[in-house]
Structure formats: C-alpha cells, structure tokens
Design a binder for these strands. Structure first.
Lengths: 345, 345
DNA sequence: TTGAAAGCGCTAACAG
DNA sequence: CTGTTAGCGCTTTCAA
C-alpha cells in the first residue's frame, strides 16, 4: 500500500504538498499538481481516510438505530436519511436492535468512542436519562418516535391527529364498535394514536370497551393474534383500527380464514401505507405517512446539530393523509370523490 | 474530552498502562488496574477508537452493497450478515444503490480508502474487471447473485434447480402454458431460474412461446405490468412463474381487478417466501430461500477472507424449498401431504 | 508556493 | 509489572 509519503517521494515534493493536492486546495503550482497526480497514478495511491479522520476528529458517519428493517416503514425512512446523508458526504451505519441481538447500549458506545458523528433514533428502549447523557456528548435526533423526558429534536407526523382522523373516518361511515390494535405504550406513536382514537370516540359519545384494546403489537403475527381474540368475543366489532399495515394484514388474513371478509363483514383500517397496502386484496384503507421526508428532515436536523452543537432542539411535524381503499366499508351516502384528504398539521 | 493521557496523569501511570487496562490485558497489578479504572470513571473517559483503528489499520467495519432494503428478501439477508458481523465485533455499513442515488463506484472507494475491511455484494452493476480489481485490494464476497467473470466467493441457492422445481410443480399439477416473469438478465439469479424453467418445460416437451417471457422486473409494479401484458394475450396462460413474491403479488392484484382469481382461474408461483406470502389472499405458493443463512454464510466467508487473504474463493450453495399454498391450483390427484419437500443442492 | 515539524489518540515493541 | 518511545497516515500551522 502506497502512502502519502511514497507519493511525496516519487513526485519529489513534501507530504504537505501532496496533501494540498489531495484536498484540491489552491496555492500549488500547476506543474507541481501535475507531478503529484502523475505519482498518484503511477503508484495507484488511494488516500487512507483514517488518517484524515483521526486528524480532523470527524468520521463523517452517522448511526441509525432502528428496531427492524423488515418493515417497509423503516426502510423508507432510512432511504430518506441516506439520501440527505449522501448529499452531505455522510455515510450511514445501521444498528438493528430487533431481537435484542444488538444491544442498543452497545451501539450508543460507538458515538462515545467517536466512531460516528451523530445518532438518529427511530425508536429507543433506553431510559430517558441515558439518552440525555448521550445527547450531552453527541448530536442526537429522533424520528418517528418521541422519547419522553428528553429534549431532543424529533420529526414525525401528528400521531394524535392521525389516530383521530382514522377513527373519525370509521365513525363517519357508520361504524360504532371499533377495536384498536397497537403496540404497548413502548412506542410513543402507538400511545398517541390511541389518544386520537379515544378523542374521536368520545366526540361521538361512544365509550370504548376494555376488550377492544388489543395491544398485540405491530407485526403480521400480532394481527393474527388480535384476530384470535376478536373471534372469541361475543360480538365482533364493526371495525378495527390497527396501528400498522402489517397488523391490519395479519388480521384480515386470519379473519378471512374464518370466512369473515374485510371491507364487507368487518372494516379494517391500517397505518403507514406500505406498498403492499395498495396490492393487498382487499386493498387497505390506511393512513399514509411521508416516510422519506421524515428521514430526510431528521438527517437535516442532525447535520445542523453537528455543525452547530448549541442549536435548540426542534419539533417538526409533517402531514399525514388518509388513503381510502377497500378494506373499510363506506356508508352508502358517502361521496366517492373525497378520495384523498390531506391534513396539514 | 478526556484522552488516554489525562487518564494516565490522573492515575499516576503511563499511557501504556492505561492502554493495557483498556484492552483487558494481563500483566497489570490489580491495584494499578483499580487506580486506572477509578481515573477513567472520574474523568468519564471513553476511548477514542479512531486512534486504535489507525494504529491497527483495521476498521472492524464492512460494507454491504444492496439494491434496495424495501424488499424483505434483502432485509433478511442483511440481518443474517449483521448477526455474524456482530458476533465477531464487526459493524455493518449499508450502501443502497437503488435509484442510482449512491453510485456503487463511490462506495467501492470506501474500501480503497480503508474505511471498511471488506465488502459484501448482494448485487452489482459494476463491470467484472472493476470488481476483480477491487477484489485484489480488498476482501469481497457475493451473496445471492453470481457475478460472471470474477473469482469471488459466492453464496446462494441453486437457482437453476429452484426454477426447475417450481416449474415442474406447475407442470405436475396440470399446467401447460406457463409464463415467466423476471428481471432482465442483469440479475444472474433471474437468468438461472429461467434456465431451470426452460429445462423443466423441455422435459415435458413444451416449447415456451416468446410471449410468455415477461421481463418486467421483480417489483410489485413489474407484476402489474406483466398482468397488463397477460390480459392482452389471446389465450391467458394456465400459470405464471414469477421470480419474486412482489411481482407475483402485483400480478395477482392486477388480475383480480379484472375478475381473474389466482389459484382458481390462473395459478401463480412466486419466489422468496417473503412474510407477506403467507398472509396474502390467496396465500402464495412460492420458493423459499434461506435468506438469513445466506447472509450469515456470506459474512463468515468474508471474515475468513479478511483473516486469511490468500484463501481460495468458495462457492456455497444452500437449500431452497417449495412452499405450497393456495395461489397454485393443484391437480385433483395430487396427495396433500407432500406439503414441504426439501431439496438439497 | 513549498517544506519541516508537530500532533490527532492510541498501541506495541523494547527495556527496565 | 511498568514506562519510554516510535509510529499508524494524514492535516495544518508556521516559517522560509
């Protein structure tokens, strides 16, 4: 491996000059530049960025902590992050915490060890104090989930409003008994959507029954479990609002195995508008989130924080949208043209 | 930021001793260890790994080049990679090349610049020569796709056999006119599955018609496009073999919009056994790949290559399996118990 | 416009 | 068992 020294020697200049050429800096005579470049070419030299990194004490890497990438919601947020990262010369490292294989704690150390310049949490199970500690020594932002008792920047939709809109839509279309499938309150988003759900129900004067809350989780399997519980009830609810498309699909699939058709015998509302929602049979009515934008904005905030560590944390709310398809039975009177209503925060 | 020097000073020892303690090395008196640890505690010292990295000239990072992470196939392979990486102290960086946003070339430079210790390609659009060049200066392995004219280790299923098995299954169940949806030959896996398809068709004395080859791609949208073409044919084929579950689902969804039911009016075979396959309606008959294992094995090969650069490239073939569900109509005579036949390479 | 030299933070011989 | 010392490869003052 040729080093900068070898190039300097070959070009008959000092390492400082080579360094200048590498960084396309000015103040080098054109013929010197050329000589250096020839030497680089001849030696097939590639600068070792570790040296630069150590010297500059910046890695140009950021860490994204994500529960799973099997869910399209996260993969789209990550794409958003990656696009902005790339535009700004950053590289993205992923910490997938699912299954506890990689302890979050362990990854957080990477920041303290200066292996990354910042962290984006797409979800966290760490205690707020630990996060605050971390945030004191390293730029951190949250996307999608809000971590209580911390003063971090966070970008997400208005989950309360989204839960409210989804539930209202069900109510407006004549559904009254509405079950709610979500993750436990480990996810702030789930808890907030539930608040929205409760608010809408209250407005219509309906008090939700205890049995309607199915905290089975957000996965396909969770949906299936929720279906099992639904099937054991005396009265099947009119509708189910699931806090993820995967859960909604698990639900529909399991119910269909018992001859219950979504969109006909029962209405199912999903959340996220994953690509499959459009292709599922029946196509899923769901709440669409601007996933790419969430990622992009989060990365922008992080870069801002890296460049200007003393800046104030921000709370960015992006718009969601109801995506009306076939899995929710509409009231006969409902006009068809109201296909996509955009709700701004 | 406290450095190793500060700790040394505070503990009244040399930096070498601190370094020894950090690396849990032997040969340090217990009370010295304790003194150092106290100093570390007091100063809230976190070692800066960049120093170590530069010194050891190894980053303990590997790069995974992947076309997309929105497809569950890739996310599972990545999980496999990550699990083995983690066990061995490596961290994973992702290069998502989809949409040409991140040029592959650019990422490959990271290896040359010593920012990563090795690369796993899940797919590549680089010319074979460039890959070979790269492989000369950096450990590289391929997973899933085979890159022709290169001498890299690669781990995948036997795609010819898988294509053959899937097609044979359709043939055995009475289907004769079978369309084939796949990506263009940019993906070696697609080309190989096609070979298997042709082999099976030939064995049954059926010559595939030109119009049966629908090289629309592997995405949901590709499946939809394939459906459009199917619908324009004079005679709808008996069955379609799609080289991905997403394409199969796009297909089924689009056909269903025209009143054609998969599993009844037409048979659809998918590929990959994504989680959705089980939850789709109708559930997808598909070829299951051991995605996690592919990733794990690839990472093992890479680590081996890193530790022993002169080792010979290997070709690892993992078993696939037919997953029989509802989207393929079975011949009446077919015994039900042959539910899962495992085919070893 | 260029070079010499001092590190970035850490590790690893080599002495003692 | 511990300290001294010489770098890893690069950038960046400071002089010349």
């Amino acid at each position: 491996m040729a080093t900068i020294k070898d190039v300097a020697k070959a070009a008959g200049v000092s390492v400082a000059t080579v360094s200048r050429v590498l960084n396309t800096s000015e103040n080098v005579r054109p013929d010197t530049v050329e000589a250096v470049q020839r030497a680089i070419e001849e030696l097939d030299y590639h600068p070792n960025f570790l040296g630069r990194t150590l010297r500059r004490l910046e890695t140009m890497k950021i860490l994204v902590i994500v529960p799973t990438i099997s869910n399209q919601f996260y993969s789209r947020v990550i794409r958003g992050i990656q696009s902005v990262a790339h535009q700004n010369g950053y590289h993205v490292m992923l910490a997938i915490t699912e299954s506890g294989l990689d302890s979050e704690q362990e990854y957080v150390q990477m920041a303290q060890r200066k292996l990354v310049d910042g962290i984006i949490f797409l979800h966290s199970t760490l205690e707020p104090e630990r996060i605050n500690e971390l945030a004191d020594s390293c730029p951190v932002v949250c996307a999608n989930e809000y971590i209580p008792h911390t003063k971090l920047s966070v970008v997400s939709i208005d989950n309360v409003q989204a839960g409210y809109d989804a539930t209202s839509f069900l109510l407006e279309n004549g559904h009254r008994s509405i079950a709610f499938v979500s993750a436990s309150s480990l996810y702030s988003s789930s808890a907030l959507r539930r608040d929205g759900y409760l608010k809408a129900m209250a407005e219509w004067g309906i008090s939700a029954e205890e049995s309607w809350f199915l905290n089975e989780g957000l996965t396909f399997k969770a949906g299936r479990r929720a279906a099992d519980r639904l099937l054991q009830m005396e009265n099947l609810p009119d509708a189910v609002f699931a806090a993820s498309d995967s859960a909604a699909i698990g639900l529909i699939s399991a119910l269909s195995g018992h001859g219950i058709q979504a969109g006909k015998d029962i209405s199912i509302m999903g959340f996220d508008n994953n690509q499959i929602a459009e292709y599922y049979i029946p196509a899923l009515t769901t709440v669409s989130q601007p996933q790419m934008e969430i990622g992009q904005k989060a990365m922008e905030l992080l870069i801002n924080k890296i460049q200007n560590p003393s800046c104030e944390p921000q709370r960015v709310t992006l718009p969601h949208r109801l995506e009306i398809r076939a899995s929710v039975r509409l009231a006969p009177s409902r006009p068809a043209r109201e296909k996509e209503r955009k709700i701004h925060p």
